[in-house]
C-alpha cells in the first residue's frame, strides 16, 4: 500500500469530497444573493428569516416532525422484540426471516413507493395522507432500527440474562432489570435514527402524501423555481443541522454504551 502519509492525505481528501458539496448549501444560504454563485456577495441571514415567514414551510416542518416522531416510536417498539427474538431465540428459518427484514435496504425506494401506492389506492381505496407516508417510513426504518438494536444486544454477554433468570427473575422481570438498561443506548440510538430516516426521506413521501407536504417534499417543490433557491438553501441547511446533531448524539450514546459494558475483558 501507499506510504503512511499518502493514505492520510487521501483520507483528508476523501472527507473533503464527501463534505464539500454538502457544505455548499449552508455556505450559500448565508450569501446575500438570489443566486448560488461565486464570488460571495456578503453575509446575510435574511434567507432564513424569509423562509421562516412562509406558512407552507412551517406546515411541512410540523408534518415532518409529527411523522418522524410517530414513525420512530412505532418502529423502535416493533424492532425491540424483533431484535431480541433474533439475537436470543433459536427457531427455524431465522436466516430467511432476517434477510426479509433487511430487504427494504436494497429494494429501490421507487419500487417500494409504487408498490405501496398501488395497494393503497387501487386495492384498499384509502386516500393518500400523512398516515400513508408514515406507514411507508415504518417499512424503511425497520431494518435500520432492528440492526442497531441487534448489534447492541449482541454486544453484551448472553449469560447476563441467564444469570438473572438463575437468580429468580422471570423473563419479563429479567427484561426490565437487565436487558432494557443494558440495551438502552441502542434503544436511544434506534429512536434517533428512526426519526432521521423519516425526517430526511423524500421518494416515498413524494409518492404517498396527499395534500400535505413533508419538509423534503416541500423542499423539492421549491427547487423548480429558480427564485426560491435561497429559501431552499436555507431550508436544506436547517435539515442538515438537525440530522447532523441527532446522528452525533446517537453515535456518542452508542459508543459510550459499548465501551463501558465490556469492562476488563480477559
Amino acid at each position: 500500500m501507499m506510504k503512511g502519509w499518502g493514505l492520510t492525505t487521501y483520507a483528508v481528501l476523501f472527507i473533503a469530497f464527501v463534505y464539500g458539496p454538502v457544505l455548499i448549501l449552508p455556505l450559500f444560504s448565508f450569501n446575500d444573493s438570489t443566486f448560488a454563485t461565486f464570488p460571495l456577495a456578503g453575509f446575510t441571514t435574511r434567507h432564513y428569516v424569509e423562509m421562516w415567514g412562509q406558512g407552507p414551510m412551517i406546515g411541512a416542518l410540523v408534518n415532518s416532525l409529527k411523522i418522524g416522531l410517530g414513525v420512530t416510536l412505532l418502529t423502535t417498539a416493533i424492532a425491540i422484540p424483533a431484535a431480541i427474538s433474533i439475537t436470543r431465540f433459536r427457531f427455524p428459518g431465522k436466516p430467511a426471516i432476517l434477510s426479509m427484514l433487511m430487504l427494504p435496504l436494497v429494494v429501490p425506494s421507487i419500487v417500494l413507493a409504487v408498490a405501496l401506492l398501488v395497494i393503497i389506492l387501487k386495492f384498499l381505496n384509502i386516500p393518500l395522507s400523512l398516515w400513508t407516508v408514515a406507514a411507508g417510513h415504518v417499512l424503511i426504518a425497520l431494518p435500520f432500527c432492528t440492526s442497531v438494536l441487534m448489534s447492541r444486544l449482541e454486544g453484551f454477554d448472553r449469560s447476563l440474562e441467564e444469570a438473572s433468570r438463575d437468580l429468580g427473575s422471570p423473563p419479563l422481570q429479567t427484561f426490565w432489570r437487565v436487558t432494557f438498561p443494558l440495551a438502552l443506548p441502542g434503544i436511544i440510538s434506534s429512536l434517533l435514527l428512526g426519526f432521521i430516516i423519516s425526517f430526511d426521506e423524500f421518494v416515498i413521501a413524494f409518492f404517498l402524501t396527499g395534500t400535505d407536504n413533508t419538509l423534503p417534499v416541500y423542499l423539492y417543490s421549491q427547487l423548480r423555481f429558480p427564485n426560491r433557491l435561497p429559501g431552499a438553501l436555507a431550508l436544506g441547511s436547517l435539515i442538515l443541522v438537525v440530522s447532523t446533531v441527532l446522528v452525533i448524539v446517537s453515535e456518542i450514546i452508542r459508543k459510550r454504551g459499548v465501551q463501558s459494558d465490556n469492562p476488563g475483558d480477559f
Binding site: 449469560s159 438473572s164 438463575d166 459494558d261 465490556n262
Partner: peptide
C-alpha cells in the same frame, strides 16, 4: 428462576450496570 439451584457463570456475568452490592443483592 424457580429451581433451588444457583450458578456461577464462566464469564461471571456480573451485571455491568450495577455495583457490587446491587449485584450480590440482585436475586
Amino acid at each position: 428462576e424457580k429451581r433451588p439451584t444457583n450458578m456461577v457463570f464462566q464469564s461471571y456475568a456480573i451485571f455491568p450496570h450495577l455495583n457490587v452490592e446491587e449485584n450480590i443483592g440482585y436475586g
